[in-house]
């Protein structure tokens, strides 16, 4: 390991309220959840922060529940608990599909949705799911609670509009109508960071979001409009190309990502139009 831990500080609040008070009065602290992103950085010696706040013991953040018609997922919900949840399987099957493809079992047992969202990697696998689902991020501080539409959370590459005294406490997903679809394209099935990832919902107002095609997750509104207006899949793919900005990096090239993004949209639409509509 390339970091010296003796200079690091870890606070261990016993409740969410205590955590928020610590953030307000003694912050800044970096929240620590399953540590599957943070400890990779610690091992590499690239972690510059020195003060941390341990969220792991905060059991109320592990809840999966319905609030009226809204599915509420606590920030500490792991990939493993997503795949085991009947509620999530019924209401948001594309999130279960995404969770099954994250890392290997060991990462699924520790990685959390709050960590995936706050980490804000454009390759984060749950991000397109929440973007397509019109999810809302519940951010709480000692004095306020805000509901941030997921598509407004990211202000740039790996930066969010969250304030240093706020924690993500939950993600809320409204009722969805229409078939859900998730695809991840990587070098292999397990333990691979996505080259490109897509989540989509069909129906009269199709919704499409993609990851790894820009600095932040992209909700493909123009492609959606083309599909909803019946302009056909070629027009939708052309529209999609105007709203993504993929780059060349270690995992893939911009050109490959443009071609595959178009192909994935076509695959989604072929499935969507080949299946009877839920309202038909």
């Amino acid at each position: 390991m390339r970091s010296v831990v003796s200079t690091l500080e870890l606070r261990r609040p016993r409740s969410i309220r205590e955590a928020l008070t610590m953030l307000r009065d003694d912050g800044p602290f970096v929240p620590l959840a399953g540590a599957t992103d943070l400890y990779v950085a610690l091992n590499f010696g690239t972690l510059t922060a020195t003060r941390f706040l341990d969220l792991w013991p905060l059991e109320p953040l592990r809840r999966v529940e319905m609030r009226g018609d809204v599915l509420s997922l606590g920030a500490l919900v792991t990939y493993t608990s997503l795949t085991r949840s009947r509620l999530v399987t019924q209401r948001l099957p594309m999130l279960v599909d995404a969770a099954r493809l994250v890392g290997g079992v060991q990462i699924q047992n520790r990685g959390t949705i709050g960590g995936n969202i706050a980490n804000g990697s454009p390759a984060g696998d749950t991000l397109p799911v929440f973007a397509a689902a019109d999810a809302v991020v519940v951010a709480r501080s000692a004095s306020t609670e805000r509901r941030i539409p997921f598509v407004e959370l990211y202000s740039g590459y790996r930066t969010t509009v969250l304030r240093p005294d706020e924690l993500i406490v939950a993600v809320e997903v409204p009722a969805l109508h229409g078939g859900q679809w998730f695809r991840k394209v990587g070098t292999r099935a397990a333990q691979a960071i996505s080259k490109i990832v897509i989540a989509a919902i069909d129906g009269d107002a199709p919704r499409v979001a993609l990851g790894s095609v820009g600095p932040v997750v992209v909700r493909a509104r123009r492609a959606e409009q083309a599909l909803a207006a019946g302009q056909g899949i070629d027009a939708a793919v052309a529209a999609l190309q105007t709203e993504i900005s993929p780059i060349d990096d270690v995992r893939s090239t911009a050109e490959y990502r443009r071609v595959v993004a178009g192909n994935l949209l076509r695959e989604f639409w072929t499935r969507a139009t080949g299946r009877p509509r839920p309202d038909a």
Binding site: M1, L10, R12, L32, G34, A35, T36, Y39, V40, N43, F44, D54, W56, P57, T80, G103, G104, V105, Q106, I107, N109, R110, Q191
Partner: peptide, 27 residues
């Protein structure tokens, strides 16, 4: 590897497999 990729450091916590190179001792 020391980065969560290889699984050589796998142990069980409360019966679940985890990579111990990515677990802060406090947890």
């Amino acid at each position: 590897c020391g980065e969560g990729e290889c699984g050589a450091c796998t142990v069980l916590i409360d019966g679940q497999a985890v990579v111990s190179c990515l677990v802060p001792f406090a947890q």
